[in-house]
Amino acid sequence: MDIEQLSDLQKNNRVEAMELLELFSSEYEQRDYQEKVPIVNVPDELFNQWEDCYELPLGHEWHKKAYTNEEYLALQVFNVTVQKVAAKTPRCLPALSDFIGTSEWQALKDAALSATKAFK
């Protein structure tokens, strides 16, 4: 991979992480997503997207270098919450309308809001 491709990969991953944190933190955005793509289980999709964005690239040097130290720490802290919620919830999460308002949903929302502050 050349330097330009690596730079694009890092930029795209940063954008994806920021957008995903914003989605985790917004009931409105989650409901809008569900309305636009009714065949998708939004809670499951959020976890899947997080895995693709954060968990799969772990261990690749380019991944950590895409972020400032503060941003990367915020992602790590958010990931701890994701893992805790994943451990407490069924593999197939309930529909968004049933998930919103649960303590697990609130924990994800709060952690995502906190993490987004590192990106501002």
Rank of each mutant, 00 (worst) to 15 (best):
M1I: 03
D2R: 10
D2G: 12
I3F: 03
S7R: 15
D8A: 15
D8L: 11
Q10N: 02
K11I: 01
K11H: 04
K11F: 04
N12W: 08
N12P: 00
R14Y: 13
R14C: 00
R14A: 11
R14S: 02
V15Y: 06
V15R: 13
V15S: 12
E16G: 08
A17I: 02
A17C: 12
A17W: 00
E19W: 03
E19M: 11
E22Y: 06
L23D: 08
L23N: 05
E27M: 05
Q30E: 06
D32G: 06
D32H: 02
D32P: 05
Y33M: 09
Q34T: 02
E35I: 03
K36A: 05
V37R: 03
V37L: 04
V37N: 05
P38I: 09
V40A: 07
V40H: 13
V40W: 10
D44F: 02
D44S: 10
L46E: 01
L46T: 06
F47P: 00
N48Y: 11
N48W: 11
W50A: 01
W50K: 01
E51R: 15
D52P: 03
C53G: 04
C53H: 01
Y54M: 13
L56D: 00
P57C: 14
P57R: 03
L58T: 01
G59E: 12
H60N: 11
E61L: 14
E61H: 14
K65T: 14
A66G: 11
A66H: 06
Y67C: 13
N69Q: 13
N69F: 11
Y72F: 11
Y72N: 10
A74S: 09
A74Q: 06
Q76V: 13
V77G: 02
V77H: 11
V77A: 05
V77T: 13
F78E: 00
F78Q: 00
N79V: 01
N79W: 04
V80R: 08
V80A: 12
V80D: 04
T81R: 04
Q83D: 12
Q83F: 14
K84W: 07
V85F: 00
A86R: 15
A86N: 12
A86K: 15
A86S: 12
A87R: 14
A87G: 15
A87S: 14
K88E: 08
T89L: 04
T89K: 08
P90S: 13
P90Q: 14
R91S: 14
R91I: 03
R91K: 14
C92A: 09
C92P: 01
C92N: 04
C92R: 01
P94V: 10
P94D: 01
P94Y: 08
A95F: 00
L96Y: 03
S97V: 07
S97F: 02
D98S: 10
D98C: 12
D98G: 10
D98W: 04
E104T: 15
E104Q: 15
E104C: 15
Q106S: 15
A107L: 04
A107G: 06
L108A: 04
L108S: 07
K109E: 02
K109C: 13
D110P: 11
D110G: 05
A111N: 07
A111R: 07
A112L: 07
A112I: 05
S114Q: 04
S114A: 13
S114P: 00
T116Q: 13
F119R: 12
F119P: 06
K120L: 10
